[in-house]
């Protein structure tokens, strides 16, 4: 069980953040949506600040936590590009990703988000099983 300590702590911090952001700004944390705002909105400062913070916080990896599993070696660019295209297009078409639907949507028991999360979990699990 001790190997779940960091996942639980990280998860609690993620939930604390979405709640803090909700109560202060009234908004949902959805990374795919915030990225789209940065790319296509007229007001870019706020999404830029959020994503700068996200990258900075996410880079604390090597500083804070000893990686239990190493990062993968550089994989095929083609795989990464196809993956990025599907994630970019799919999250916009479906209106959310793991944060917007998976965390914030399920937290407020949104039917759309619960269905979306079940669908993307299912296709992700099938994809991993098929590509191993």
């Amino acid at each position: 069980m001790e190997n779940l300590t960091y996942p639980i702590l990280g998860g609690l911090l993620i939930g604390l953040t979405t709640s803090f952001y909700l109560i202060t700004t009234g908004r949902v944390v959805g990374i795919s949506g915030i990225l789209a705002q940065l790319l296509f909105n007229k007001c870019r400062l706020l999404p830029l600040l959020f994503i700068a913070g996200l990258i900075l916080g996410g880079s604390a990896y090597g500083v804070l936590v000893q990686p239990s599993i190493p990062f993968p070696e550089m994989r095929s660019p083609l795989l990464l590009i196809i993956s990025g295209l599907l994630v970019g297009y799919g999250t916009r078409l479906g209106g959310g990703c793991t944060s917007g639907h998976g965390v914030c949507g399920i937290s407020r028991l949104s039917i759309r988000s619960i269905v979306a999360t079940m669908v993307f979990m299912a296709t992700a699990i099938i994809t991993v099983a098929a590509t191993k």
């Binding site: 990374i31 795919s32 990225l35 996200l54 996410g58 993968p72 994989r75 795989l79 990464l80 196809i82 993956s83 990025g84 295209l85 599907l86 994630v87 970019g88 297009y89 799919g90 999250t91 916009r92 078409l93 479906g94 209106g95 990703c97 793991t98 944060s99 639907h101 269905v115 979306a116 999360t117 669908v119 993307f120 979990m121 299912a122 296709t123 992700a124 699990i125 099938i126 994809t127 991993v128 590509t131």
Partner: peptide, 17 residues
């Protein structure tokens, strides 16, 4: 959209964040 996103996520292990 969710279906395509899941395929992309499963291919690389990366979601947007």
């Amino acid at each position: 959209g969710a279906g395509l996103f899941g395929i992309g996520w499963g291919l690389s292990g990366y979601c947007p964040g």
